[in-house]
Every structure is written in structure tokens, then in C-alpha cells.
């Protein structure tokens, strides 16, 4: 039987792994490559890397290495793909089929696209034809205002005219293979997933929905898996702050009879 997936999201800002709160406040957590190794050892089912830099400066600040050590986002992904052997989704700053190809060529299995979908709807169709729809993840960021949900682009900065349900149906019809659904209000708040939002969307599309935003304890994963039809549960911050986080989250779900892979600790 196919398993529900537990997916750490790694937010990279100028080459650093960061914690994010409401898409606006960031705190440095360190080197993304060492963090990824740990997440792999704790048997994550998949990883999502999002480049949320507002400019093109990358600096791991490893002056102690005695040589220039500036890695671009893509170099970081390439280094990671040499040491972790699992499915990886890469997003951020994707504007064209060429951008997608570059990310696949450094080891990504899928790409996640958000802002460019509003500039060029056809990019989904074109890229699904070229690389297969299994490869194209539509990322949808949602914010609640006066009791109504709205879709946002540009890293949570621009409100779009679509209601989330309509936009989700539209990206599905255009050929997206999955939806990564993130709540801006819940980002970094630890109060749990926005169940109403996630249920609304996972009920109306048949492609897999990955829920993100708001996890503060393991039971939040269980709640969204019980109450909605999501195929995967994702989180960022919570996986960075405790030893064996993914292992413990999976152990919780496995022991509560959720359909996940058995918890495991891997030697890489």
C-alpha cells in the first residue's frame, strides 16, 4: 500500500538555512548541507528545498576553509544530491523550462513553481509535456483576510485575484502533478495546520496535496492526516530544532496507526 509522506522543507536564504515566521521574519540556522544529512539519516520520505532569497548573493561564510566558498543555490543542491539518495523537490526563482532543466540536472526530481504560474500559466502545460506532470509541483501560498482566503505570489507579497479552491482546480487542469499548499498566517506559528483551508482544497482536486504551515507538535501531523485527504505532510521549523525530529514524528504517526513508512535511522 502506498504510504503518506512526511516531508521536511528547507528554506534557503542567500545560501543559509533559515527559519521563517509569517513569510517575513527569518533566523539563520546554519549550513543546509549538514542539516540535510541529518534529515536523511532520520529517514525523511522526501525533501523540499525552497530558495527564498530576494537577491542573488550566496555566502556560506566558511572563511576558515582558506578558499573562496560561495555556493549558488544550485551548487548546494548538487552537493546534497551526491550524499542523500531520496526524492528531492526544488523551488524558488523558476521562470522558464530552462530553469527547470537546470534544477533537474543537478539532482532534483521535481520542481515547485509559484509566482511564475501567474505570469505564464502555460509554463505548467509546457513543462508537464517536456518533463512529465509528476515533475511539476504547483506551490500555493494562502492568507486569510477578513475571514476570506486569498492566494498570494512573490513570496507572500502580492495578492492575486484567485480564490485558493479555484486556483487549485486550475493548476490541476493545466497539468500540475502535485500541490504544495502553505498557509502564510500559520507559517512559524506552531498552532497547527489550517485544516479548513487544507480540507477545502484536498476535497476538490485529485492530485496529491502536500500540507504545510503551522506545525508545532507531532499531533498536528496526525490531525491533518485524519481530517483531510492530503497525501503528504510537510513542515520546516519543527524539524530543525530537535535531535531525530523526523524519526520521532514518524514514530508518533506509526504508533498511532497512520499509514506511513516505519520509523528508521539510517547510516549514510
Amino acid at each position: 500500500m502506498k504510504k503518506k509522506r512526511l516531508i521536511p522543507i528547507l528554506l534557503l536564504r542567500n545560501g543559509w538555512l533559515v527559519q521563517s515566521k509569517e513569510f517575513s521574519r527569518y533566523q539563520n540556522l546554519g549550513n543546509p548541507e549538514t542539516a540535510t544529512l541529518r534529515l536523511s539519516q532520520w529517514a525523511s520520505d522526501e525533501l523540499i528545498f525552497l530558495d527564498i532569497s530576494r537577491n542573488d548573493i550566496y555566502d556560506l561564510r566558511r572563511d576558515d576553509l582558506g578558499c573562496a566558498n560561495r555556493h549558488t543555490f544550485l551548487e548546494i543542491i548538487e552537493n546534497i544530491s551526491k550524499v542523500v539518495f531520496m526524492p528531492m523537490t526544488v523551488g524558488g526563482k523558476i521562470k522558464s523550462l530552462f530553469d527547470i532543466e537546470k534544477r533537474l540536472s543537478v539532482g532534483a526530481d521535481k520542481v515547485s513553481i509559484n509566482t511564475q504560474l501567474f505570469n505564464d500559466e502555460k509554463i505548467i502545460q509546457k513543462s508537464a509535456n517536456e518533463f512529465g506532470s509528476q515533475c511539476i509541483v504547483a506551490s500555493i501560498d494562502v492568507k486569510k483576510e477578513n475571514g476570506k482566503y486569498f492566494v498570494y505570489s512573490n513570496g507572500g507579497q502580492k495578492r492575486e485575484d484567485y480564490l485558493p479552491i479555484d486556483w487549485a482546480k486550475k493548476v490541476e487542469s493545466l497539468g500540475a502533478g502535485e500541490i504544495l499548499l502553505n498557509s502564510i498566517d500559520r507559517d512559524g506559528m506552531k498552532t497547527g495546520y489550517d485544516i479548513e483551508l487544507i480540507k477545502g482544497i484536498s476535497d476538490v482536486v485529485s492530485i496529491p496535496v502536500i500540507a504545510a504551515g503551522g506545525v508545532g507538535e507531532w499531533s498536528h501531523f496526525g490531525q491533518v492526516l485524519s481530517e483531510t485527504k492530503v497525501d503528504a505532510v510537510a513542515a520546516a521549523n519543527i524539524f530543525q530544532y530537535s535531535d531525530q525530529s523526523v524519526y520521532l514524528a514518524k514514530k508518533y504517526l506509526y504508533e498511532h496507526n497512520f499509514n506511513v513508512r516505519p520509523p528508521d535511522l539510517l547510516e549514510i
Partner: peptide, 11 residues
């Protein structure tokens, strides 16, 4: 009823 492609972890 299940979606195609079949993507994910299965035993």
C-alpha cells in the same frame, strides 16, 4: 480510482 502516475513509497 487512484491517480496516475503512481508516485511515492510503496512496499
Amino acid at each position: 480510482q487512484l491517480p496516475l502516475p503512481h508516485i511515492g513509497w510503496n512496499n
